[in-house]
Computed example of a mutant assay.
Amino acid sequence: MPWRSRRRPVFEEQWGCSGRCVLAMVRDALRREMGDRTSATTSALHHHRVPLGLLLLSQGWITHPQLRRALEAQRQNGTGRIGEWLIAECGLEAEQITRGLSLQWSCPVLSVEGFSPEAMALVMPEIFVERFGLMPLRIAGGRILYVAFEDHLDASASLAIERMTGLKVESGILNEVQFRAAQSRLLECDRVEVKIEAVSDADTLAGRITAILEQKQPVASRLVRLHHYYWLRLWLENGAVGKPGKFPFSGEDMGDYVFTVGAQG
């Protein structure tokens, strides 16, 4: 029987005995991802947070007149974060804003110590780094991946990275200047090749992913959703499956696909 010699593709630790079998597994994964309520938007998550200006005021780091001045400058210009205006209009240090953000989000302030842009560039597609203001920094203890955010945490993004890499993700805030400098270095590095596609609906997406798996025949693959993006990662040869978890140590023999569905494309 033809299926007896078939050992690929492997999708989320399951072997696909036939194209129909692979399609069923992909549809199950899409139902799981599309029904995942953990990916609430950042703005929705932010509603219960104490506004940064009020938090800084409560800490005694700014005065009422300073806060009013910054808010007025922000209103008149129609752009910019309140922290930026407190620095520009009131002379606050960037470090004070970073400390305030860490209090606002109940998370640590991270540093770039131990940052390896060549290794971290392999963690995720460039589009996520640019669109969601996040950046992988380092792996600690072989099992913990530290991910830095510029001005807010994104639990959905952290969960997606955790599920894709098999590593526990710890999130924190990084100083804006350090964040920008590290991001620039990261984006200059080689990474896993990525293809970005838009599809019309979920059925089309399931068929497209199945076709990719059947064509590429990966030894491992996984699908996760990061907000409105669907991220498919392929490990094409046994040597590409790194340790710890499924963290890649090279972009060779790997592939990333990022999909959007319908109007979200």
Rank of each mutant, 00 (worst) to 15 (best):
M1D: 03
S5Y: 14
R6V: 11
R8N: 03
V10G: 08
E13P: 00
Q14D: 05
R20S: 10
D28H: 14
D28K: 08
A29F: 03
R32Q: 14
G35S: 11
S43P: 00
V50Y: 07
V50Q: 14
L56M: 14
L56D: 06
R68F: 11
E72D: 10
A73G: 12
Q76A: 13
E84A: 12
Q96D: 12
Q96R: 15
Q104A: 03
Q104Y: 04
L110K: 11
P117W: 14
E118M: 07
A119T: 07
A119F: 05
M120K: 01
I127H: 02
V129C: 12
E130W: 02
F132W: 15
L134K: 00
L137M: 13
L145Q: 08
A148H: 11
F149W: 06
D151R: 14
D151H: 15
A155V: 06
S158L: 14
A160K: 03
I161P: 01
L167T: 04
L174H: 03
V177E: 14
Q178L: 10
A182H: 06
E193M: 14
A202K: 10
D203C: 01
A206I: 11
E214R: 05
W235Q: 01
L236K: 07
E237G: 11
E237R: 13
G242W: 14
P244R: 03
K246V: 04
F247G: 00
S250K: 04
T260A: 08
